[in-house]
Simulated scan of single mutants.
Amino acid sequence: MLSLTDRDAVTAALTDPTIDPDLRALIGLRVWQVDTDRRRPLGEILQIVAVQPGDTSEAIHAAVGFPITYDQADQPGFEWMNDHGSWFELAYVLTDDFGMLVFVADHPDTNPTLLFNCHGVADRRTASTTD
Rank of each mutant, 00 (worst) to 15 (best):
M1T: 09
M1V: 10
S3G: 12
S3D: 11
L4H: 08
L4E: 05
T5M: 08
D6K: 02
D6N: 15
D8C: 11
D8K: 15
A9C: 06
V10N: 06
T11G: 11
L14W: 05
D16G: 06
P17S: 12
I19G: 03
D20Y: 05
P21E: 14
L23F: 07
R24P: 10
R24Q: 13
R24M: 07
L26Q: 13
I27C: 10
G28K: 07
G28N: 08
R30H: 15
R30E: 12
Q33E: 11
V34E: 11
V34N: 08
D37I: 07
D37H: 10
D37Q: 12
R38G: 02
P41N: 13
L42M: 09
L42H: 06
V49I: 14
V51N: 03
Q52D: 05
Q52L: 14
Q52S: 09
G54S: 01
D55M: 04
T56F: 03
S57L: 05
E58Y: 07
I60Q: 01
I60G: 05
I60F: 04
I60R: 05
I68D: 03
I68M: 02
Q72E: 14
A73P: 03
D74V: 11
D74W: 06
G77R: 14
F78H: 13
W80Y: 15
N82I: 09
N82R: 15
D83M: 07
S86L: 11
F88I: 02
A91L: 13
A91C: 15
T95H: 10
T95C: 05
D96P: 08
D97R: 12
D97T: 15
M100G: 01
L101Y: 13
V104P: 00
A105T: 00
D106E: 02
D106C: 00
D106H: 08
T110D: 03
T110N: 05
T110K: 01
T110A: 06
N111P: 02
L114K: 06
L115C: 01
L115S: 09
L115W: 06
L115I: 01
F116T: 13
C118S: 07
C118T: 04
H119Q: 14
V121N: 10
A122G: 06
R125G: 06
A127L: 13
A127H: 09
S128F: 03
T129N: 10
T129M: 10
T130L: 12
T130Y: 11
D131M: 08
